[in-house]
Amino acid sequence: MAGEATVINVAARTSLWLQPHRIVLILIALALVLGAAFFMRWDWLPQYYQMGLVGIWRSLWILAVTCFLGFLLAVPLGLAQAAGPFWFSAPAKAFCTVIRGTPLLIQLWLLYYGLGSLFPQYPWIRESWMWPYLRQAWPYGVLALTLSFAGYEGEVMRGAFAGVPKGQLEAARAFGMSRWKIFRRIWLPQAIYRALPTLTGETVLQLKSTPLVATISVIDIFAVSSKVRQDTYLTYEPLLLLALIYMAITGILVFAFSRIEARIPNKIG
């Protein structure tokens, strides 16, 4: 039965793509792509593709690290706002408001140029083990992107924690679970299920924020494309390819998250 359903599904999907106007549109798109491939200059590609791969890798790495760390930070932020006493919830709310109310570019520059210019005044920082890292740009980029993700996701997690039905927590307490166990087994998993659909969107937004680190001299894929533009005086080719790369990464992310979401029971709460 299941096999039959998938066959019908696939047939329906292909027939959706094979409507006459779509065929024409696809042909036009193909013509545009081929025209771009033949009439634009792509001879710089062999020279730069290795650098581009490193750049893509660095962008993805920054994305993964900042999303992971940001999410870890968002859980306590959300919990503090949803259930914490005033002296926990107020700072958490203030943090989220400040992060969400100011542009990421300003946060990034504040950390890199602002905070970075304060550090060398203190000799104990210059002599500490952190100094070799603080001299580079990427820790500031990672920190800014992490805080930004935590700020936005903290707000989402607040709603997710608050949205878990009281009955679930009361039942867990009636089972005699400790507070930590209730949090670990009941509250957090259900909150994450609730937050997951928005998590996809937030991760895509985070991906779209990563090129900002190029403004503080981290060499990600955006910086590589800027370098190509400077070296070859081409305007469109590197930017178009860059847009294509970001679209491909977005597509992969959305697909991966939809697979993860499909594995989660949708009857919650």
Binding site: V204, L207, K208, S209, T210, P211, L212, F222, T235, Y236, L239, L240, L242, A243, Y246, M247, T250, G251
Partner: peptide
């Protein structure tokens, strides 16, 4: 919605 605003701004600005 899939391409970073920064890239779009550069692309649209020049183009």
């Amino acid at each position: 919605r899939a391409v970073p605003e920064l890239v779009l701004i550069l692309l649209l600005y020049y183009a």
